[in-house]
Amino acid sequence: MLGGFALFAVTVLVAVLVVIGGDPDAPVDPPGPPGTGPLTVVSLGDSTLSGEGAGDYTAETDGRDGNWCHRSPNALVHQVSLTGIVDSVNLACSGAPSGHVSLGDVEQWTEPSQAGQLRALLDEHRVAAVVIALGANDDPHFSRLISECFTSWFLDQRAPCSEKIKADWQRRLDAMAPKVRDAVGDVRQVLTDAGYERQDYELVLQSYASPIGPGIPEQWRNLNGCPFRAEDLAWVAETGTVSLSETLRAVAREADARFLDLSRAGTGHEACSGGEDASDEWFTRFTVEWDNLKDVDRASHALQESFHPNAAGHEQFARCLSEFLATDDREAACLEGEDGNLHAAASSHSLAGR
C-alpha cells in the first residue's frame, strides 16, 4: 500500500516537473540582480566619492566642456572588492547636492540626474551594490564652511569661524535630512522600476571623514599646508563631522539603507597631521593647481582638490566598505586597526539598531 502510494507520488512529481520545467536548454536567470551584464558596484553622490583629491581625473570630467565632476580611477568605488562583482561605475560628481542624485531635470557641471544615469546603466549592468555619499553640499555647505574657516585664519582679529557656524548648524542638518532621504528613495525607485527586489542589491549611505583635525603641528597651520585656527580644527573634527554623521545615520534608517560611519575614519591621518612627512596622510593639504591659473576658464577650479581624500584615503575607505558589504550588519564604523588600516567595526549605534 505504502509502496503504491510512493510510486503514485513520484509519478505526480515527475508530471509536475515536466509541466513547469519547460525547455531544459532555455537560459536560466542567474541569482541576484535581474537583467544582463556584469555584476557591478556603483557610486553616486559628491566629491568624496567622485575622487576629488585622488588625482588622475578622467579627461571628460576635468573641465572639458564645463564638466568638473573630477572622477578619478583612484576613487573608492573602483577599489571595492566583493565576491562576484567584476565591474565598477562612478556616477558621483564633485559639488553635487542631493537634488542632482534625485530624479528630475537637474544638472551638475553639465551632467543630468545621477539617478537617471543609473537607470540607463541598468540596461547593460546587473547592479549588486550602490554606495551613496550625499548631504554636505546641501544646507550644511560643508566645503564652503571649510573655506570660511580658511578665511578666518587670515582675519585673526575675528572670532573663530566655528563660533558663527554653531549658531544654526543643527538647523542646517535638519533641513538637509529630507533632501538626502528623497534622493536615496529615488535611487531605490529606479532599481524597483527595473525589476529589482530588495534582496537583489545592497544600498549603503556613508558619511564623511573629517579632512582636518586638532593634531596638526603648529608650524603647519599656515599656507604651507593647513591654514586653520586651532579652535576651528577641533570643531570640524569633533563636532561638525560627527553631528553630520549622526544626522545621516538617522536618514539611512528612515530610508532602509545600510549606514557606514566615516566620521572617525581619518583620525590621525588628516591633512597636515604628519608635519614634514605627509606619506601617512589620507587627505590633500591646501592645494593649488598652478596651471589652472593660466586659463581663465579653469582658474576658479585651481583650489578644488584641497582637503579631500587622496588616493591613499580612497584605498582605505574602499577596504572598510568592502568589509562592510561582506557582512549582514546594518551599520558599522570605519576605524583604524592595529595593522594601521581601516576596518569595518560594529559600534554601539549599530548594536542598538539590530
Rank of each mutant, 00 (worst) to 15 (best):
R298G: 01
R181N: 11
Q219Y: 03
D46T: 04
Q189E: 13
A136S: 13
S81W: 02
L351T: 09
R188V: 11
N90E: 02
R198P: 06
A75T: 06
T36K: 13
A183E: 06
L13T: 13
A175P: 04
V190G: 02
I132P: 01
D280A: 15
V296C: 00
R188C: 01
D280P: 05
A302N: 04
K179S: 05
S210Q: 00
L17I: 10
N90V: 07
V41Y: 06
V127S: 06
V204I: 12
W153Q: 01
E60M: 08
F228S: 02
A175G: 07
R229K: 06
D65C: 02
I85C: 04
D277R: 09
I85N: 03
L103R: 12
G84L: 08
S152E: 09
T36P: 03
L342N: 02
E246V: 05
A278N: 09
E246C: 00
V28G: 00
N137G: 08
Q114N: 04
D29Q: 15
A302C: 05
L82Y: 13
G213T: 02
A345C: 03
E60V: 12
R158F: 15
Q108D: 07
A128G: 15
A75S: 13
D328K: 07
A26P: 08
E289G: 10
L244C: 03
T327E: 01
E276S: 14
A26W: 05
Q117M: 13
F5S: 10
E60D: 15
E197M: 10
C226L: 05
G225M: 01
A59R: 11
